[in-house]
Write a protein that binds this DNA or RNA. Sequence first.
DNA 1: TTTACAAAAAATATCGATAAAATTCTTGCA
DNA 2: TGCAAGAATTTTATCGATATTTTTTGTAAA
Lengths: 240, 240
Amino acid sequence: MPRTYNEQKPTSGSRTLTDQAYLQLRSDIIHGELQPEEKLRIEHLREEYGVGASPLREALSRLTADGFVTAEGQRGFRVAPMSEADLADITRMRILLEKQALSQSIEHGDDAWESQIVATFYQLEKVEQSEERDQAEWEVRNHDFHEALIAACTSKWLRRFYGILYDQHKRYRNIALSTEIPRDLHQEHEALRNAALARDKQRACDAIEQHIMRTAEITLKVLREEEADRENEVDKVAAS
Amino acid sequence: MPRTYNEQKPTSGSRTLTDQAYLQLRSDIIHGELQPEEKLRIEHLREEYGVGASPLREALSRLTADGFVTAEGQRGFRVAPMSEADLADITRMRILLEKQALSQSIEHGDDAWESQIVATFYQLEKVEQSEERDQAEWEVRNHDFHEALIAACTSKWLRRFYGILYDQHKRYRNIALSTEIPRDLHQEHEALRNAALARDKQRACDAIEQHIMRTAEITLKVLREEEADRENEVDKVAAS
DNA sequence: TTTACAAAAAATATCGATAAAATTCTTGCA
DNA sequence: TGCAAGAATTTTATCGATATTTTTTGTAAA
């Protein structure tokens, strides 16, 4: 009896198994389920994710392009490392690109663009001011808002690169904050919204720079604390 | 008798078949052997490049990340389209990134960096002033020189994105110029070298901007002429 | 002649199996 | 005890075969 190997799970909207594997792996890396530098053995992942080698390898190739995975010929794949230097690099680049995208967006944005900024800001505000500050919810709303700001940017390449950096940054935030709550970023978001709607490029660029810097600083601080904790653990074990 | 399917061609230095397929496809796209928008049928490519479906798909995934190929789930791959708008986009982005990379490089460059600029400029100069202006040779020397200029840039991400854009731009140059000769870009290169060695960021950035703009303009002009020619052809055929 | 549908053909995505390469484990020797 | 050669194991990269989808072709009704 010929058996069906694609069971067409209706749970995931993804078309192909490769897409599914890609999205799952991506999510697991961003959320730290797969640790930095961890070896990604195909055989192992096959069981874990329930797909064959081909779609897995393809998914890993894509993730390599996104900078979430590193590949070495004949040596397989591993989760991309994380470092303070890398975070600093991502931050600087994100500032450069998001400023540019924001400027273009302010230049070309129409009424729909403005509306979308107002709408996404409102949703973000709601999450930020609610009692139980849901990290996952905030992530989504934050992303929507930032996306709305640069939605009128006409450069395909700028958007592509910006998207990669945003997701990279997200990984650092997720690893660091994990269960932490977002702080008073609210004023910064508000300033950003107002500057954009006022079509004030300079003010908007300053706001976005400061905003990204602040977010990165907080992430960096938590990252360092975690690092210190880990070293303490090691010392304790060594001392016992 | 178990047969060997990897014949280990010693001609190509690449480790894996995937790498080989990637490099070949890439080159064929950059040099216009594979036309923009052309369908890339796996079955067909298998014969053409002599490798199986798996390495091909992986190679195509990588090329998708580089922006040389587009992929649509369940619909396969095709060569990425080319357009004037895309060229303009690439140009603008390349200016933004190369300026940034150059600034950082000027800031951090050491003696070895300076030497490398002098050396690669000299080689480029030789090609530019020789009688038989070999397009392929010039491409390599030009790339080496530009690479040397930003070699001291510390940002991994900046270099990654810049590399992608440089190669994209190269495709347009190759498609457009094909057998054309490089013009008096020599003075621009010289100005660039001098500004870099003088550690004059402002001057270097201006020089690079003008240089990239000029190159792009020339490419655009040739592109338009070719387009016009093609339309003439079509008209002729339609009239007959 | 065009449109609509169904059958046929082609192409994609995927699997399981396997050769080659890398890694780990043994074991014999200085 | 340390270590090097090589045997065993694990892992990667790759192939050929096949289910599922998409595209093309052929045909009959409007």
